[in-house]
């Protein structure tokens, strides 16, 4: 499984990438593999507030629905709208094209509580 070193992770398999003061969020390679073919992604609207550890949307395969959990609290400032029409990007390129939202964090220090790539890779090894 691909676990890029420059990202931070949640235990629920979301990744977070710093972009200036903001945080880009998506799901990991492991998550998309577990889910199988993603057929639908439901995302919040720009301007919505999200809270760390709480659901901000869902991702669906044909037989399962999984909630998406925010890695940090803040305001949604960008949404990857093309995913609604082309959810396959989540499978094909989870770390780039498959990004989901950008958050303007209200408590930037929460980023430090996320898992490092090494810790996340360790978590995956345990699950195996």
């Amino acid at each position: 499984m691909n676990v890029p070193e420059d990202l931070a992770y949640t235990r629920e398999h979301e990744w977070a990438r710093r972009k200036g003061s903001r945080v880009v969020v998506g799901i990991t390679d492991f998550a998309q593999d577990q889910l199988g073919d993603v057929v639908y992604v439901e995302l919040p609207a720009v301007g919505d507030e999200v809270k760390r550890g709480e659901s901000f949307g869902v991702v669906e395969s044909t037989k399962a629905v999984s909630e998406l959990f925010a890695p940090v609290s803040g305001t949604v400032v960008e949404v990857n709208d093309p995913l609604v029409e082309a959810p396959e990007a989540v499978n094909e390129d989870p770390y780039e094209e498959g990004w989901m939202i950008v958050i303007e964090p209200s408590e930037p220090r929460q980023l430090e509580d996320l898992l490092t790539s090494a810790a996340y890779a360790g978590l995956l090894a345990e699950q195996d």
Binding site: Q34, D37, S66
Partner: peptide, 12 residues
């Protein structure tokens, strides 16, 4: 993002 059913749909 667990998948408790063990169902991993992918025709491929």
């Amino acid at each position: 993002m667990s998948n408790p059913t063990g169902w991993k749909p992918s025709v491929g």
